[in-house]
Structures are given as structure tokens and as C-alpha cells.
């Protein structure tokens, strides 16, 4: 492991990507240039250029199969797991090319956390779920792990509901609670960017509202990219919105602009619900 951690003075894991922001602005910039992506022969993403500043919340919208999830998964190299895929172009996070050969994927994924569409807790206790990321990153200090777990569960707005049953199986939680547990788990390793792939699509309105509140909270500390099918959600939580269609990034602008005065006709059709 290249980075060392100073447990006493700071609870943030240090960045393997080099330069890091001051404490109040922790998020990282993302800059994708001329990205093309293929599933075998299928051209899933076509020449995407996409830039995000620190601590922004960006919503990716578009009809199913438009490539928004694929693009999201490029940002922490999750697509590496799918055989037969190919990418050209470059993705810079905090100025560094994450597809460069000297980048360790596991180090990258500590910086760029991810929350999946379906809650996917491990078949372990609530505590162990959140502690997992710390443990696999070589942290052994028990008190530090405990503090960090509690802190993460609190910042995922789950503490009051689970504080008495941290040793119970995570499967005993409701879907919404499980999803917040997954968010807590992602936050525990102190990423700088959080990717969310339709985090509320499997949840009821109350749980969804909690997650959205949470995103507002998290914005202070993280750069957040969220894929959503829900227009209202996109308009509620995001600063900027990107509209994908058939593998192309059609329009990327301030959320208010996208929803009130989009430049492209296709975007307007989509956000007003005329198609998609």
C-alpha cells in the first residue's frame, strides 16, 4: 500500500491520487474527454465530453439504455469487470487519468465510492457491513473503526433506526434502510466522489425523500454523480443535469436550464415527459 494513514489527526483517508482539496472542499473534479465505450460490437457511448467541478451534484438522465449507467460505471472502472468491453478517450479525476496503467483500481475505488441501484448489503451484521471497506483497506485499529462506522451511519441518516441493533443481520433492515446502509458503507472509507446508480429507484417515497435529503447533506463533502429516471428527483437534488440519448451526451447544463429552457428539442421532449 502506497499511502499511509494518520489515524489520530484525521479521519479522512489520504488520497492515492495526489493533490487533495482543503477540508471544506473535499470533492474532486471529474473530466471525461472524448470517451467512447463498446460492449463487444455495441457502441454504447459516443464521444462523451463531461466536466464536473468539486462538490457539485450532477444528475444523469435519459431513457433506458442511453448509456448513463455505463458512463457512471466508467468513473470508478466498474466496467472493467464486464468481459469484452473497450474504452477509448480519457477520464481524469482530480487531473489524473484513471485509466493510466500505473493506477491501481482498488485505490481508485477508495476515492470514488459507489451506491448501486438495488441495495446490496453483505450477508453480515450492520456493523460489519460498514466496517468492511475499512477492514479491506488494512485498518486494524478497533476504536477508529468503531468511530468511523458510527460516524458513517450517522451521516447516512440511519443511526436512530439501527443504533440498538448494530450486530443484527443487515438483511433484517427494510429496503430503504438497506440502501442508506449501503450509502453509509460507501461513506465509511471517505471517498471524494460518490457515484449513485438510481439509488432510490427501488424505494418508497418516504425512503426516497430521506435519500434525497441525504444527498443535500453530502454535497458539502463530496462530488456526487447520480443516475436517475425520476425527473423531479433530478431537479430537486442536482446542480447540473446531463441528458443522455442513444449513447450520446445531448445536453449538459445547469439543472434549472435543462428543466426550464433546454437548448435541444430532444431534451425538452424528455424532461417534459413527451417521450421516454
Amino acid at each position: 500500500m502506497t499511502n499511509t494513514r494518520n489515524i489520530e489527526t484525521n479521519t479522512n483517508l489520504s488520497s492515492p491520487l495526489g493533490a487533495r482539496g482543503s477540508l471544506d472542499v473535499r470533492g474532486l473534479t471529474i473530466d471525461a474527454k472524448n470517451v467512447d465505450f463498446y460492449y463487444s460490437e455495441f457502441h454504447a457511448l459516443k464521444n462523451i465530453n463531461f466536466e464536473v467541478s468539486k462538490n457539485e451534484v450532477v444528475a444523469l438522465i435519459g431513457p433506458s439504455g442511453c448509456g448513463k449507467s455505463t458512463f457512471l460505471r466508467l468513473l470508478n472502472r466498474m466496467n472493467d469487470l464486464i468481459p469484452g468491453t473497450r474504452m477509448t478517450g480519457s477520464v481524469l479525476i482530480d487531473g489524473e487519468d484513471i485509466y493510466a496503467p500505473n493506477i491501481h483500481v482498488d485505490e481508485l475505488r477508495k476515492e470514488v465510492g459507489m451506491v448501486f441501484q438495488k441495495p446490496n448489503p453483505f450477508p453480515k451484521s450492520i456493523f460489519e457491513n460498514v466496517a468492511y471497506g475499512l477492514r479491506v483497506n488494512g485498518i486494524k485499529d478497533k476504536t477508529f473503526i468503531e468511530e468511523r462506522v458510527i460516524e458513517s451511519i450517522k451521516s447516512a441518516a440511519l443511526w436512530d433506526e439501527v443504533k440498538d441493533k448494530l450486530n443484527k443481520s443487515a438483511f433484517a433492515l427494510s429496503g430503504g434502510q438497506q440502501q442508506r446502509l449501503c450509502i453509509a458503507r460507501a461513506l465509511a472509507i471517505s471517498p471524494k466522489v460518490v457515484l449513485m446508480d438510481e439509488p432510490a429507484s427501488a424505494l418508497d417515497p418516504i425512503s426516497t425523500a430521506k435519500i434525497e435529503d441525504l444527498i443535500h447533506e453530502l454535497k458539502k463533502d463530496y462530488t456526487i454523480i447520480i443516475v436517475t429516471h425520476n425527473m423531479q428527483q433530478a431537479s430537486r437534488v442536482s446542480d447540473k443535469t446531463a441528458y443522455f440519448y442513444l449513447g450520446e451526451l445531448i445536453e449538459f447544463d445547469k439543472t434549472t436550464t435543462i428543466f426550464t429552457n433546454p437548448k435541444e428539442h430532444s431534451t425538452q421532449n424528455y424532461v417534459t415527459g413527451r417521450f421516454g
Binding site: 469487470l81 477508495k110 446490496n120 468492511y132 479491506v136
Partner: peptide
């Protein structure tokens, strides 16, 4: 083993080997 489990582990910065023996 559901792909979601593996992905969850890898997304938390676990290496492939850690994922194999911990998940």
C-alpha cells in the same frame, strides 16, 4: 454469488483476492 455482492466489495476498494475470501 450475485454480481451485486462482488461489485459492492470491489467498489469499496477491496482487491480481487479480498473479495474472493471475504465475500
Amino acid at each position: 454469488v450475485p454480481r451485486a455482492m462482488k461489485e459492492a466489495s470491489l467498489a469499496l476498494g477491496a482487491t480481487h483476492w479480498q473479495t474472493i475470501y471475504k465475500v
